[in-house]
Design a binder for these strands. Sequence first.
DNA 1: TAATTATGTCAATATGGCTGACATAATTTT
DNA 2: AAAATTATGTCAGCCATATTGACATAATTA
Lengths: 182, 182
Amino acid sequence: MKSPMMKRPMKPSQPQEATREDEEVDFAIIELLFFAYRDFTSDPDAILARYGFGRAHHRVLHFVNRRPGLTVAELLEVLRITKQSLARVLKQLIDTGYVVQVQGPRDRRQRELYATKKGHALALALALPQSRRIHAALEEAGIEDRAALERFLKAMVNPELRAQVDRPPSGGDRTSERGKME
Amino acid sequence: MKSPMMKRPMKPSQPQEATREDEEVDFAIIELLFFAYRDFTSDPDAILARYGFGRAHHRVLHFVNRRPGLTVAELLEVLRITKQSLARVLKQLIDTGYVVQVQGPRDRRQRELYATKKGHALALALALPQSRRIHAALEEAGIEDRAALERFLKAMVNPELRAQVDRPPSGGDRTSERGKME
DNA sequence: TAATTATGTCAATATGGCTGACATAATTTT
DNA sequence: AAAATTATGTCAGCCATATTGACATAATTA
């Protein structure tokens, strides 16, 4: 090693107690969320790489597919990123024919976003392994009450932002309502 | 707009049906996981910013705090990043006194990592709002069976990698076993 | 008409990843 | 003992994704 600097701090001879705070903090679930989400998001990565896309493209495509007719401003709110960050990724999705823009019917400044058939197919392909993972986990964990899990996850979201969660009508995705473009 | 190119593709006059595939894919939970994790990770960000740290620092500090004596190689495995990526972040945590290295007792090439008291305190401060959010969500969702949630999250992790999840002894974090340094 | 809004774009910067190459010290193998 | 391997560190360059700030255009609202 170049500059060792390897002090050898004494290990306390008598192990210290975990503090009260430690016990109160739910490290177990915090960590499980990290691991679960890490592997959950890794599923689509291999697929995305084959298209020259990254996770940013995935997120955009997912929400455009789920909320057909979403405007740019609405998308920015959901993703919590800036329009400059969105720009490159969205442009690539449009240029490669996965997403189209339509002038807003009421307000012509707005751009409604729609997934093309191609976009819908990719969104589905990306969601499939994630969905399989979820169902396998539900089964493996012996979860009968799937609604409870949904309630928990929704309750994890900031109250002010829960409206976003509720956007797609309870029946499923809005594809059936507003159609796919192209 | 500079180059409009605003075609107006026809919206299909009769909305298309959601395909069988759509119905089978669990978009609801996929999306809830995105929203839940987005807000879950946003909690510590404000705190980190005050220290000039980012999420990468948080992850390193978390695992060093949770698994005292972890070696660099083990940390890389858990985080699934390269040593070059770890280097800058770890160096900053060491230079600012949140983490210390100790020469491995068996193998002197190894560097065991420990959180200092300062590091332990920060790790705790970062975990607290996350822990509160989890408990509030459990209560709000009326989840009585907390173990079921843990089983589900663990089942979401790739089987090969579940050993990582089990590392900290079930009792809690290993602080009580191996002590904090400095 | 003037102000505001929705979108787009340019430029510079930060963060957190990556690969490849190489160095050092310590351990293991031959 | 010498050679090979391992654990760690470091340099250099690159990429993806995010940021802030400034400015432009078209459309809507006041």
